[in-house]
Design a binder for these strands. Structure first.
Lengths: 171, 171
DNA sequence: GATAATTGTTATAGATCATATCAAATAGCC
DNA sequence: GGCTATTTGATATGATCTATAACAATTATC
């Protein structure tokens, strides 16, 4: 515990009959108010849901969204080192070490010392890694993204993707 | 460290001259490939950027997005207890305790034992809490959301919000 | 009145994210 | 060549966020 526990303040409110707000006794849904208009709030809520569905769709392969993104990037950029892969994914190098440990211990990718620069590790997918990625891509396309396209409509989905890219880029 | 460190596998690759992929020697940007087409990935990247901007815009008040959402909900729903506020925000009750501790220790809200149900704590903003929320709302509207509207255009922003709501709801 | 359920809370574990630091290797400069 | 600075992967560590179990006090249910 960091924040010191503060004693509960007993409201020294003057006497009142038929309490005005405290009981509420309503039970109805709470008002979200301006919260629904906050883009950041909606973004986070949507992201959590989408990740949840991704995790569910790809569960048979035991891949998290982050792990999937690593495999995908390794496939598209063979022969890169850890720093390059990590930074383009927005992962800090120290945190990328354990991620790679997990993938490598499952035989999905390999670290190899570069002959040019013996500091760096060349990263490459194994055959098993490529096979797993292929199966994951299929699951994502047919189950996950398919559901998104169905829910939003293909045109809206494309528009959404475009706006998200704008936010991630220009903001 | 949880995952056992696995030894680096020295590729037992047969001899090769003029290495085909390892050196790369490119230096160019990495290919994102199908990653840019993944809605979840774009969602997360956009959400991080938007939160970062929110934090910056509202920095003078020292409010995180989560804290702002709590104040907003308390203002719109005075007299509710911790469980109600926490669950509608998707916060687990145990984790909400420390959040409230922080807000209450800053004098922004107050816990009061309910007279009806002496188990629960009625939550209410203090005057200082209302004032802080008002200032925060103004900063968010004029700096944060204004920038988003300018970047996307008001119509696109509304469409984006609508789609995000759909994802958070129906998914 | 006995049992079950709820509320706020604590403790705790895991995951995510960030910083400082290190040894090995390389680059750059004189 | 040799010295310094930088880079790379790695470790240690801390902060934050998330998730579960359990507990005392209180209320609900039968």
């Amino acid at each position: 515990m960091t924040a010191s526990r503060s004693a509960i303040v007993k409201a020294p409110r003057a006497g009142r009959k038929s309490p005005p707000v405290e009981p509420v006794a309503d039970g109805g849904a709470l008002l979200m108010g301006e919260l629904s208009e906050l883009l950041g709030y909606s973004l986070k809520r949507a992201q959590l849901r989408v990740f949840e569905d991704f995790l569910h769709c790809v569960a048979p392969l035991q891949l998290t969204p982050a792990q999937f993104s690593v495999l995908l990037l390794l496939d598209n950029n063979p022969g890169r080192n850890q720093t390059e892969i990590a930074t383009t994914l927005g992962i800090l190098r120290p945190n990328f070490v354990a991620m790679l440990d997990a993938l490598e211990s499952r035989g999905l990718c390999v670290r190899t010392r570069s002959a040019n620069d013996r500091r760096s590790h060349i990263l490459m997918l194994t055959d098993k890694g490529r096979a797993t990625l292929a199966r994951a891509k299929k699951l994502v396309a047919t189950k996950h993204e398919a559901r998104l396209s169905e829910l939003l409509g293909p045109a809206n989905r494309a528009a959404l993707l475009s706006m998200l890219a704008t936010l991630a880029r220009e903001f």
